[in-house]
């Protein structure tokens, strides 16, 4: 046992300084494409219709981009630029009255998070799991993952919400005490991603529960998930990436 203590001490502190400081370690985020430019030809190569033409410019619906890199590696037209950031979380379009304003913390000092897998591919969950490790160590921010809805303040949902998971997800939400927040993690949870249209799953969490915060990415890297949690409790301002988001009804179907 003594050996382990030494090993722990020898390793020193690895944790990121985020959110106090920006994280500059390479490889913490795959980035996202940046809208703009007039290579409208790109619009057709996006497999999930995340790219659209708007006033002669390429616009981007972040809730649908699945990191396929086609627009970045397009041979024919000028490729899109990529951002290197990770502060992607935004308030959902329908967050409405329950949303916490930035700076106004609706929760106490510690935050308990229930993670529900509603059919993800495993990558989103894996990124969430990294938050417990020494590099991200979200315990230092008073954020803890709890296995039961009874003690949870925030519900973190990944996956497009499969038919089989709809009821369990609803029940978990109902079992949580109020006040509570729902954070949808990853494009599948935002729009169904590559898994829609389908008989087997819906197009995201918003079909089932009121969503407060959305975090795009396929998968969103750990710091983006952390940003989502901080936005949910008003400890960080939202990215405003979704300001232009169109309502669900107007979306063109995939393929």
């Amino acid at each position: 046992m003594r050996g382990w203590v030494f090993t722990g001490l020898k390793t020193g502190i690895k944790s990121t300084r985020y959110p106090e400081e920006e994280e500059k370690r390479p490889g913490v985020s795959p980035g996202l494409p940046i809208a703009g430019g007039n290579s409208l030809g790109l619009v057709d190569i996006c497999p999930t219709n995340a790219l659209l033409a708007s006033n002669g410019q390429v616009a981007l619906e972040y809730g649908r981009c699945v990191h396929c890199f086609r627009c970045a590696r397009a041979a024919k037209s000028a490729p899109l630029d990529w951002s290197s950031g990770y502060e992607w979380a935004d308030l959902s379009a329908k967050a409405g009255e329950t949303a916490v304003e930035f700076g106004q913390n609706g929760f106490g000092r510690s935050l308990h998070v229930l993670v529900v897998d509603a059919g993800d591919c495993g990558a989103c969950l894996s990124e969430i799991a990294q938050l417990n490790g020494p590099y991200y160590n979200m315990h230092r921010l008073g954020i803890f993952i709890t296995p039961t809805p009874r003690f949870a303040d925030v519900l973190l949902v990944v996956g497009p919400v499969t038919e089989h998971m709809r009821e369990p997800l609803r029940k978990a939400y109902a079992a949580m005490p109020t006040p509570k927040r729902v954070v949808a993690i990853g494009v599948c949870a935002l729009s169904g991603g590559v898994f829609v249209p389908s008989f087997a799953s819906g197009s995201g969490v918003a079909d089932v529960l009121p969503v407060d915060v959305v975090v795009p990415g396929c998968p969103p890297p750990p710091l983006a998930v952390l940003h989502g949690l901080l936005v949910a409790v008003g400890r960080k301002p939202p990215s405003r990436m979704f300001v232009s988001q169109r309502p669900v009804e107007e979306r063109t179907p995939v393929l």
Binding site: W4, V5, T7, G8, T11, K14, R25, P26, G27, V28, S29, P30, G31, V66, H67, C68, F69, A123, S126, E127, Q130, N132, G133, P134, Y135, Y136, C218, P219, P221
Partner: peptide, 27 residues
């Protein structure tokens, strides 16, 4: 302690993959 010690190589391999190939899970 072993869990944290094991998390370090995992995260380092994820970020290595990302710096190398642009995506942490090689999509």
């Amino acid at each position: 302690v072993a869990t944290s010690q094991a998390s370090i190589p995992e995260e380092e391999l994820l970020s290595l993959s990302c710096s190398f190939a642009g995506h942490r899970y090689l999509f």
